[in-house]
């Protein structure tokens, strides 16, 4: 089986409902109709070269925007991380001092540790999403509605998810707290416990992430080749064996995407930490993205250079994954072209 990625091989994405042949003839007609106009044009330099130049002209606005707001700021952050700057006064060049401080900063290591926890535990969304997708991949009455409702958490803003779970965990009256109290005799204030808080937030993050992975797998399961399944059934493959040897290989594109979005989601985790704990108690639930914001823009911070240095580290971690993903995608692209 061929490698697959977000780009996939050249083949219509299952979006449109119009049959391609119909479009072809219709568009031919449109093309012929506009022919009359084009024939009146003189042969000019532009006409000679338009096929070569058009892509560049079309690219200019998008690329310009993207350069100014995304690409250049990345390099600017690298540069800023060498300064001591409070965002108000003069910048002062201090070389690698920010990094030196960072590597001697307990809060940095706490954040880093939590980021690793996020990365590892967030991966649970992939099998869980697959599990729910398999559970829901039936053709019974109302199943479409069930699928939508299971997917629902993903549509909600993380801010709302955070509030929902903050209520869920709230000591003395939160649903989770009371369930625990009822089951074990004493409740736990998850968000106040330095050892549990990160797990509590990750659980909240998993809720929409599982939904996302589920929908990816549902789409993937839809496209699984029925003939292969039948053939495998004839060979008496069942249950887990069937899943492992027949289904999962066909779901590779969905798995790849699920892993990509989950890794990105885990490293970007900011919203939930900010809403649910503000990094507390005493910084135990910080992640790099939150610590960076805290240092650069929060009430007690405003160390732009230090914040930029944290962002650079986060970027470098992400770079490891990005290069992997991109390498795979470019590879697919090459083979697809």
């Amino acid at each position: 089986m061929r490698g697959a990625g977000m780009s996939g091989p050249a083949r219509p994405v299952p979006l449109g409902n119009e049959p391609p042949e119909g479009i072809v003839s219709e568009q031919r007609r449109a093309a012929r109709m506009s022919l009359a106009n084009t024939e009146t044009q003189r042969r000019t330099w532009w006409r000679e070269n338009q096929q070569r130049l058009t892509p560049y002209i079309f690219l200019i606005p998008g690329v310009l925007f993207f350069l100014v707001y995304v690409i250049i700021p990345i390099f600017e952050s690298f540069w800023l991380s060498g300064f001591d700057w409070d965002g108000l006064g003069e910048k002062q060049w201090i070389g690698f001092a920010n990094y030196q401080e960072l590597f001697d900063d307990d809060a940095f290591y706490t954040s880093l540790k939590n980021n690793v926890l996020w990365l590892v535990l967030y991966m649970f969304a992939v099998p869980a999403g697959l599990g729910i997708a398999i559970f829901l991949n039936q053709k019974v009455r109302l199943i479409r509605a069930y699928k939508s409702l299971f997917f629902f958490p993903f549509v909600i803003s993380q801010v709302v998810v955070g509030l929902i779970f903050a209520w869920f965990y709230a000591p003395n009256f939160g649903l989770f707290y009371l369930l625990l109290e009822w089951a074990t005799g004493s409740g736990i204030a998850v968000l106040a416990d330095p050892d549990l808080v990160t797990y509590g937030i990750i659980a909240a993050g998993l809720w929409p992430q599982i939904a996302y992975c589920m929908i990816l797998y549902l789409t993937g399961l839809n496209a699984v080749d029925p003939e292969q399944i039948e053939a495998a059934r004839l060979d008496a493959a069942k249950g887990f064996k069937m899943l492992w040897y027949v289904i999962l290989p066909q779901l590779r594109p969905a798995t790849f995407m699920a892993v990509v979005v989950t890794v990105i989601g885990a490293l970007r985790s900011f919203d939930l930490v900010s809403i649910m704990t503000d990094g507390g108690p005493f910084g135990s639930s910080r992640v790099l993205s939150f610590y960076m914001y805290e240092q650069a823009l929060s009430e007690y911070g405003y160390r732009m250079g230090y914040g930029a240095a944290i962002a650079v580290i986060l970027f470098l971690i992400m770079m490891v994954f990005i290069s992997g993903f991109i390498w795979k995608m470019v590879d697919d692209e090459r083979r697809g072209l």
């Binding site: 330095p194 507390g280 108690p281 005493f282 910084g283 009430e299 007690y300 911070g301 405003y302 160390r303």
Partner: peptide
């Protein structure tokens, strides 16, 4: 404390006080 001490010190200090009351 968060007005007498500089903002950064206040933040780190108050986290420390909170931690002391837990651990």
């Amino acid at each position: 404390f968060d007005r007498d001490a500089p903002a950064e010190m206040a933040k780190i200090g108050m986290e420390g006080f909170q931690q002391f009351m837990v651990q």
